[in-house]
Every structure is written in structure tokens, then in C-alpha cells.
Simulated assay, not measured.
Amino acid sequence: MNNKHNEMDYIIQLCACANLRKAARIVTQAYEKQMQSTGLKVTQYYMLVNIARHKEISISKLGEIMLLDQTTITRNVHILKKSGYVNITKDKNDSRTKSISITDIGLIKLEEATPIWLQIQQKVENGMGEEKYKDLLETLINLQKSIE
């Protein structure tokens, strides 16, 4: 019995997936609390940034960039459309593909939300220290590559 208990403790303490998910939830909650006044979830903010960066992007390409399934992308894009932040049109070259572009209202929302995002981002970086933060990013990239 004691051996099984020790094995379970070992799994709980060292599971990369569980620990990363837990850390991701804590970080996400902190970003979303800070960004609450904008009405944007951190995922929606990140979507707007990507849409603005690409000018016009397909739902599937946005999903690839953000590593989110099509259902999650579509649901959030429709929320952004309902708020007037994005336009959804049929692709000029392929009528089956939907293209997303940011509206002027969406750009204004980004201008409002970005300083708030920068504040929480700075808090995270300062809390860890610049070197540790850079190491964390490098470690996360290496982890992704090692599993792919």
C-alpha cells in the first residue's frame, strides 16, 4: 500500500502535463482578471492581435497559429464579430473558406486592451526576473519541439 501511495505522490508531483495545465490556469486567471475591464478574454485578445497582424486570415490558419481547434476558434470569432471587432467574409479565391479581418472598432479595442496586457505581462516578467523568464520561454519552446 505504501509503495502505491509513494508512486501516486511521485506522479502528482512530477507530471509535466498536470503541472503545466495548473500553471497555465493560474496565469490565464491573472491575465483575465486584469483584462476584465476590456470585456475581452485573454484568448480573444490574442486572436485580435493575430488577426490585426495578418490583416486577413482564415479560421483554419488562425487555429493553426493559436493551436486551438476549429470549434473554439469559430466560437470566439463569432463573439468578436458580434461585438463589432472583426468581419467575416468568404475568401476571394475559395468560397468555402472564411476570412477574418479586424474592424476599426476592433483596432480601438486593441489600443484599449494592449496597455492592460502590457501591465500584467510586465508583472509576470518582473516577478520571475528577466533571465528566468527568457529561460522559461526557451524551455517551453524546447518542450514543444521535443514532444512534436
Rank of each mutant, 00 (worst) to 15 (best):
M128Y: 12
K123T: 13
I120H: 14
Y46A: 02
G39A: 10
I65G: 05
G63R: 06
G127P: 00
E64K: 14
L62V: 02
E138N: 12
E112D: 03
K61Q: 12
E111Q: 12
M66P: 03
T97H: 04
I108M: 13
W117H: 08
S37K: 05
L68P: 02
L67V: 08
M66E: 04
D104K: 07
K98L: 07
N50D: 11
D69M: 12
G63L: 09
Y31D: 01
H78P: 01
V42S: 15
E32K: 02
Q121R: 13
T97W: 02
S101Q: 11
T71L: 10
K90C: 04
T74R: 08
I79S: 01
K41S: 09
Q34R: 07
A30N: 12
T114K: 13
D69C: 04
L118Q: 07
L48V: 00
N126P: 01
V77T: 00
I65Y: 09
A52M: 14
Y133A: 01
S99G: 07
T38P: 08
L40Q: 00
T43G: 06
I59Y: 06
V49F: 14
M35L: 10
Y85G: 00
S58T: 09
T71F: 13
Y133Q: 00
R75K: 08
L140H: 03
I100N: 03
R53S: 13
M47Q: 01
K123S: 14
I79Y: 13
S95E: 05
R75N: 11
L68N: 03
I26E: 14
D69E: 04
G129D: 08
T43N: 13
K92W: 11
Q122P: 03
T114Y: 09
I105M: 10
L140V: 09
G39I: 07
V42F: 15
L118C: 09
K134E: 13
L136C: 14
Q34N: 09
E111P: 01
I73N: 05
D69W: 09
K134N: 09
K132M: 15
L110C: 02
I120W: 11
A23W: 13
K132F: 14
E112W: 11
E56W: 10
L68T: 02
G127A: 01
I26V: 15
S83G: 07
E138A: 05
P115D: 05
E138M: 05
L48C: 01
V77Q: 00
N87G: 05
I116A: 04
Y46M: 06
N50L: 14
H54G: 04
E131N: 15
N50C: 10
T103V: 01
Q36W: 10
Y133F: 14
E56C: 11
P115T: 10
K98M: 04
P115G: 03
K123C: 14
H54D: 10
K132V: 15
E111D: 09
Q121I: 01
I120G: 01
I88A: 03
S37W: 06
M128W: 02
K92D: 13
T97N: 03
I73S: 05
V124H: 09
V77W: 01
N126L: 12
E125D: 06
S60I: 07
